[in-house]
Simulated scan of single mutants.
Amino acid sequence: MTIRRVTADDRLTTSFPLAAYAFESSPLGAARVGQFRDYLPYNEGNTTLTVEEDGVTLAAASAIPMRQNLRGVVLPMAGVASVATHPLARRQGHVRTLLHQLLDEMRDEGHLLSALYPFRSSFYARFGYVGLPKPRTVTFTPADLAPLLRTDLPGEVGWERIGAGYPLWRTFTEQCLRQRHGFSVFPDYRAVGLRDRDEHWLLTAQVDGEVTGAIVYRIDEHGGTLHGNELLVTDPLARMLLLQFFARHVDQVERVSVQVPPDELPELWLTDLDVHVEARVGRPASSAPMARFLSLDALHGLPAGAGRVRVELTGDRWLAGTHLLDGTSGTLEVVADASGRTPTATLTAAGLSALAYGVLDVSELPLRGLGEVPADAAAELRGIFGRAVPYLFADF
Rank of each mutant, 00 (worst) to 15 (best):
M1T: 10
I3T: 15
V6E: 12
T7V: 12
D10P: 08
P17S: 07
A22K: 04
P27Y: 12
R32W: 02
F36Y: 15
R37W: 01
D38V: 02
P41Q: 14
L49W: 01
T57S: 14
I64R: 04
V83L: 05
R91E: 08
R91V: 02
R96F: 00
T97C: 01
L102Y: 06
H111R: 14
L113I: 04
L116F: 01
Y117L: 06
F119R: 02
F119Y: 12
S122T: 14
T139R: 15
P142L: 06
P154H: 06
W159L: 15
G163I: 08
P167L: 05
E174N: 14
Q179S: 11
F183C: 06
G193E: 13
L194Y: 12
L203F: 09
V211M: 03
T212C: 03
I215T: 11
H222K: 08
G223H: 13
T225D: 07
N229E: 15
N229C: 04
A238F: 00
R239A: 13
L242Y: 06
Q244E: 10
A247G: 06
V258Q: 01
Q259H: 08
Q259S: 12
D263H: 14
E267L: 12
L268W: 06
L268V: 08
L270R: 09
T271L: 14
R283F: 10
A285E: 09
A288Y: 04
D297K: 12
L299R: 06
P303R: 05
E312V: 07
L325C: 07
T331A: 14
D337G: 04
S339G: 07
P343Q: 12
T346L: 00
G371S: 06
G371H: 00
V373I: 09
P374G: 13
A388E: 15
L392D: 05
